[in-house]
Amino acid sequence: NQESVVAAVLIPINTALTVGMMTTRVVSPTGAPAEDIPRLISMQVNQVVPMGTTLMPDMVKGYAP
């Protein structure tokens, strides 16, 4: 099972992602793949992402898996 990126903390809208904001988990439906964490760092979210929420590609500005 592939791990997806999950918010480790509450991420406010327009916040640039840091490694400490993200964790990985096997979830369904799958979100952004765990191996993309290095690409996701410094990208901004376009909505509030509550802690424990799977990071879906459409939540991150300019990100395409």
Results as ranks from 00 to 15, higher is better:
16 A>S: 13
23 T>Y: 11
42 S>P: 03
5 V>C: 07
40 L>V: 03
21 M>T: 01
60 V>D: 02
13 I>P: 10
25 R>G: 10
61 K>N: 13
6 V>T: 00
26 V>M: 13
9 V>Y: 06
32 A>M: 15
29 P>H: 04
56 M>S: 04
24 T>W: 09
30 T>H: 15
3 E>K: 14
34 A>D: 04
13 I>W: 07
28 S>D: 12
60 V>T: 05
10 L>H: 15
28 S>Y: 15
29 P>C: 08
8 A>M: 08
36 D>I: 05
64 A>Q: 15
61 K>P: 11
16 A>M: 12
10 L>V: 07
20 G>Y: 15
11 I>F: 00
36 D>N: 01
29 P>E: 03
38 P>K: 09
18 T>R: 10
60 V>Q: 03
3 E>Y: 14
18 T>C: 09
61 K>E: 12
35 E>P: 02
60 V>A: 01
3 E>N: 07
64 A>S: 15
55 L>Q: 00
22 M>D: 07
15 T>Q: 03
33 P>W: 07
16 A>R: 15
61 K>R: 15
22 M>Q: 07
29 P>T: 04
32 A>P: 02
65 P>K: 09
25 R>H: 07
62 G>N: 12
2 Q>N: 13
38 P>L: 09
30 T>G: 11
38 P>S: 10
22 M>Y: 04
5 V>D: 01
48 V>C: 15
14 N>A: 06
64 A>V: 15
25 R>K: 12
1 N>W: 12
34 A>T: 05
36 D>E: 06
24 T>S: 13
4 S>W: 08
58 D>Y: 15
31 G>R: 03
41 I>F: 01
14 N>I: 08
49 V>M: 02
55 L>Y: 05
65 P>Q: 12
13 I>S: 11
12 P>D: 10
17 L>A: 02
42 S>D: 12
40 L>N: 00
43 M>P: 03
13 I>E: 13
32 A>D: 03
30 T>C: 13
54 T>D: 00
32 A>Q: 00
16 A>Q: 12
46 N>V: 10
30 T>F: 15
15 T>R: 05
7 A>D: 03
11 I>H: 01
44 Q>N: 04
40 L>P: 03
57 P>S: 06
28 S>R: 09
3 E>C: 12
24 T>N: 06
24 T>E: 07
2 Q>P: 12
31 G>T: 01
46 N>K: 10
2 Q>W: 12
18 T>F: 08
31 G>S: 05
2 Q>G: 14
14 N>M: 08
34 A>M: 05
44 Q>T: 13
39 R>P: 03
10 L>D: 15
37 I>F: 04
11 I>D: 02
63 Y>N: 01
26 V>P: 00
45 V>G: 01
1 N>T: 13
52 G>D: 02
7 A>W: 08
5 V>L: 00
28 S>K: 12
31 G>L: 03
38 P>I: 09
23 T>H: 08
64 A>N: 13
7 A>G: 04
57 P>N: 03
30 T>Q: 15
47 Q>A: 07
39 R>W: 09
35 E>Q: 13
23 T>D: 09
43 M>L: 14
9 V>T: 11
45 V>N: 02
10 L>E: 12
10 L>A: 06
52 G>I: 06
33 P>H: 05
16 A>C: 12
65 P>T: 11
63 Y>S: 04
58 D>R: 14
43 M>V: 05
21 M>V: 02
52 G>P: 03
32 A>R: 02
17 L>C: 07
52 G>V: 01
49 V>E: 00
38 P>M: 10
5 V>T: 00
48 V>L: 12
53 T>E: 11
52 G>M: 06
23 T>M: 14
60 V>L: 06
35 E>D: 11
31 G>E: 01
48 V>M: 15
45 V>A: 00
25 R>M: 10
46 N>Y: 08
61 K>W: 12
62 G>D: 11
15 T>P: 00
57 P>V: 09
24 T>P: 08
10 L>S: 10
4 S>R: 05
49 V>K: 01
55 L>D: 00
49 V>L: 03
52 G>Y: 06
21 M>Q: 03
1 N>S: 13
2 Q>C: 13
51 M>E: 14
53 T>N: 08
38 P>V: 10
3 E>F: 12
8 A>G: 03
52 G>N: 08
54 T>A: 03
48 V>H: 11
32 A>G: 00
2 Q>E: 11
47 Q>P: 03
44 Q>P: 03
57 P>T: 05
61 K>T: 13
61 K>H: 12
40 L>M: 03
7 A>H: 00
9 V>I: 11
5 V>M: 01
62 G>F: 07
54 T>L: 05
10 L>I: 06
19 V>F: 15
50 P>M: 10
39 R>G: 02
49 V>P: 01
37 I>M: 11
49 V>C: 05
47 Q>G: 04
26 V>W: 13
55 L>G: 02
7 A>N: 00
4 S>E: 04
28 S>T: 14
59 M>F: 06
32 A>I: 15
41 I>Q: 02
18 T>E: 12
14 N>S: 06
24 T>K: 13
11 I>K: 00
39 R>N: 07
27 V>I: 05
62 G>A: 07
8 A>S: 10
49 V>Q: 00
10 L>M: 13
16 A>K: 13
50 P>R: 10
36 D>S: 05
44 Q>V: 15
9 V>N: 03
26 V>A: 10
8 A>H: 07
15 T>C: 09
37 I>N: 02
9 V>F: 06
11 I>R: 02
51 M>Q: 13
16 A>W: 14
58 D>Q: 13
53 T>C: 13
6 V>Q: 01
12 P>H: 09
59 M>H: 00
43 M>G: 00
49 V>A: 03
21 M>A: 05
8 A>R: 12
20 G>S: 14
32 A>S: 07
27 V>H: 04
56 M>N: 04
37 I>L: 11
7 A>F: 08
12 P>C: 09
36 D>K: 04
12 P>L: 09
30 T>R: 15
41 I>T: 03
8 A>W: 08
20 G>C: 14
9 V>A: 02
32 A>V: 15
17 L>S: 01
26 V>Q: 11
20 G>I: 10
28 S>C: 13
6 V>L: 07
22 M>V: 08
3 E>S: 12
39 R>Y: 11
46 N>A: 07
51 M>H: 02
11 I>Y: 01
39 R>K: 12
35 E>F: 14
55 L>A: 04
23 T>P: 07
45 V>L: 07
7 A>C: 05
41 I>E: 04
31 G>H: 04
18 T>V: 09
65 P>A: 13
4 S>D: 00
16 A>G: 08
22 M>I: 09
46 N>S: 09
24 T>A: 14
60 V>C: 06
56 M>A: 04
59 M>K: 04
23 T>L: 12
41 I>A: 02
54 T>M: 05
45 V>C: 06
29 P>M: 08
16 A>I: 14
57 P>H: 06
19 V>C: 13
19 V>Y: 15
57 P>A: 10
38 P>D: 08
64 A>W: 14
12 P>Q: 10
42 S>V: 07
8 A>L: 09
58 D>C: 15
59 M>N: 05
51 M>Y: 07
22 M>C: 08
58 D>W: 15
29 P>A: 00
36 D>T: 00
23 T>F: 09
65 P>Y: 09
1 N>D: 15
15 T>L: 06
48 V>Y: 10
1 N>C: 14
60 V>W: 06
34 A>G: 09
25 R>F: 08
59 M>P: 00
21 M>C: 08
18 T>G: 04
60 V>G: 00
25 R>N: 08
64 A>G: 11
14 N>V: 07
49 V>G: 01
7 A>E: 00
44 Q>H: 13
12 P>T: 09
51 M>C: 11
23 T>V: 10
28 S>N: 13
54 T>N: 02
54 T>S: 00
46 N>D: 02
9 V>L: 07
22 M>S: 07
52 G>C: 09
18 T>M: 08
30 T>E: 12
42 S>L: 08
56 M>W: 05
33 P>F: 06
63 Y>G: 05
58 D>M: 10
2 Q>L: 12
36 D>R: 02
54 T>Y: 06
45 V>W: 06
45 V>T: 11
29 P>N: 02
65 P>S: 12
25 R>I: 08
3 E>H: 12
54 T>Q: 02
27 V>R: 14
61 K>Y: 14
26 V>S: 10
54 T>P: 01
50 P>S: 09
4 S>M: 03
21 M>K: 01
51 M>W: 06
58 D>S: 15
11 I>W: 03
19 V>H: 12
30 T>N: 14
17 L>E: 00
37 I>Y: 00
4 S>V: 07
50 P>L: 10
25 R>W: 08
64 A>D: 11
33 P>E: 04
53 T>L: 06
37 I>C: 02
52 G>K: 04
24 T>V: 11
32 A>E: 00
43 M>T: 05
64 A>H: 14
20 G>F: 13
41 I>H: 00
38 P>G: 11
29 P>Y: 07
22 M>P: 07
17 L>G: 03
30 T>V: 15
30 T>D: 09
31 G>F: 02
38 P>H: 12
43 M>R: 11
64 A>E: 14
37 I>P: 04
65 P>D: 10
12 P>N: 10
34 A>V: 07
41 I>V: 14
41 I>K: 04
3 E>D: 05
17 L>F: 06
10 L>P: 02
34 A>H: 04
